[in-house]
Nucleic acid binder design. Structure first.
Lengths: 130, 130
DNA sequence: ATGGGGTCTGTACCATAGTACGGAGTCAAG
DNA sequence: CTTGACTCCGTACTATGGTACAGACCCCAT
C-alpha cells in the first residue's frame, strides 16, 4: 500500500504519517520500483498499519508521542519492567485525570442547574464576581 | 496587591497573568501612584483575583481560553441561554472525554496485567506487531 | 504515450498556552 | 538615599502535534 492508503486506513492524514516518520515512530521504507537515482514510491505493509493504529490508541490513552516512541523502542519483550512502569504510571495519570474531569463535571452541572432555576444572576457568569 | 501577589494567590506565574491580560481575560488597571509620564505600578483588587481563579477553574473544566473569554464577555446574566449552552456543551464534551479515558484505562490495565502474567511477548510492546 | 492524481522532499506555518529575557523604571525598608 | 526586589513593556522563544505548501517526480489507466 502507498502512504495515502496507509493514512486512510489509519484514520490520519498523509502529512501526519510523514510527521510520525520524522519523529521516528514509523519507519520509512525504501522507495522501491525505481532504478535507483530517485526511484519509485514507498510501499507500506500491514505491520506499518498495525503500528500506526497502535500509535493512535496509545495517544488516546494519553501517552505523548515521546512516550510512544519509548514504548516502540523497547524491542519485543526485552524490557518488560519498563513497559509495565510506563503503563502503570499512565494508569495512575488517567485515574487522576478522570477524577479531575468528574469533579469539573459535577461543578459545572450544578452551575448550569442554578443558572436555569435561580432568580439571581446566572452563576456561570457571575461566579467570579463580587 | 501587585501583579506578583495576584499571581501567587492565583497559583500562576506573573507572566501568565500578563498573558491573560494580553488575551483580554483579565483587565489591566491603570498605573496608579505615578505622576503620569511613566507612573507607578498597577494595583489589583480582590475582583481580579476572583476572576483569575474563575479562569483557572474553567480551564480545569476543559474550557479553552477562548471559550472562557466568551463566558467572561457575557455580562452578568444578560445572556443566560448562551452561558447555559456553553456549559451543557462542555458537560457533553466532558462526558465523552471521561468515557474515552475510562476505556483507555481499561485497555491499558488489561495490557499491563497480561504483560505481568503471560508467557508470550509483552503485549504492551508487541501490540502492534504481527 | 499522455494525462491526472498520488508521492517525495524540504521548508514554512498554525493553534494553544504559556515562558523567558533585556533594559528601564519604581517601591519600600533600612 | 541607597540598595535590592519587584514591575513594566515589548519581543522572542518554547513545547506539542500537527498542517500546508511548492516544485519535482512517478505510476497507472486509457
Amino acid at each position: 500500500m502507498t502512504i495515502g492508503a496507509l493514512a486512510r486506513e489509519g484514520g490520519v492524514g498523509v502529512e501526519t504519517v510523514r510527521y510520525y516518520q520524522r519523529r521516528g515512530l514509523l519507519d520509512t521504507p525504501d522507495r522501491s520500483g525505481g532504478n535507483a537515482l530517485s526511484g519509485g514510491v514507498r510501499r507500506y505493509g500491514p505491520g506499518d498499519l498495525r503500528r500506526l493504529r497502535f500509535i493512535r490508541q496509545a495517544q488516546a490513552s494519553g501517552f505523548t508521542l515521546e512516550e510512544i516512541g519509548e514504548l516502540l523502542a523497547l524491542d519485543a519483550g526485552h524490557d518488560r519492567p519498563r513497559a509495565q512502569a510506563l503503563a502503570t504510571a499512565r494508569i495512575k495519570a488517567l485515574d487522576a485525570k478522570i477524577a479531575e474531569l468528574q469533579a469539573a463535571r459535577t461543578a459545572l452541572q450544578k452551575l448550569a442547574q442554578d443558572c436555569a432555576h435561580s432568580d439571581g444572576p446566572c452563576p456561570i457568569i457571575s461566579a467570579f464576581e463580587a
